[in-house]
């Protein structure tokens, strides 16, 4: 029931590093922000939409959204653009063919090395 809000409380001071990783993710997945991605909320509900932006708490803004099962979930029929609080997201399904996995791995190694030095 409770949102465990680790993100907002826990990372404020370290926001800088976080942004960079998210940026890497955005760069390398080429979410030129027109690709469809799927946000699975922690309630077994799927929303499909175009990823518009992500902030350091992983709050997400989606445009042109579609609910994958409107029969079961008519609750958002009139919503086309939405903001999702990062803390309620479990997964984001990404477009696999647009992910440069080599770039992701390199970026991760680089950041791991940077975090060591601090």
């Amino acid at each position: 029931m409770k949102i465990v809000d680790g993100m907002v409380e826990g990372t404020r001071g370290r926001g800088g590093r976080r942004i960079s990783w998210v940026k890497n993710v955005k760069d390398s997945t080429g979410m030129k922000i027109s690709e469809c991605c799927e946000i699975l909320l922690e309630r077994e509900r799927c929303i499909c939409g175009t990823l518009h932006s992500v902030d350091q708490f992983l709050n997400i803004k989606l445009t042109d959204i579609n609910v994958t099962d409107p029969e079961k979930y008519p609750h958002m029929l009139s919503v086309k653009t939405c903001f999702i609080r990062g803390s309620v997201v479990r997964y984001v399904q990404l477009p696999a063919d647009e992910c440069d996995t080599q770039l992701l791995q390199d970026a991760t190694r680089k950041e791991a090395a940077q975090n060591k030095q601090r």
């Binding site: 949102i3 809000d5 907002v8 909320l41 959204i65 958002m76 029929l77 009139s78 919503v79 086309k80 653009t81 939405c82 903001f83 999702i84 609080r85 309620v88």
Partner: peptide, 16 residues
């Protein structure tokens, strides 16, 4: 209160 918010959607009045 923000903790209790999961999602905010912009409602299209005509559709609604």
């Amino acid at each position: 209160r923000g903790d209790n918010v999961a999602l905010i959607g912009e409602v299209d009045d005509d559709t609604d």
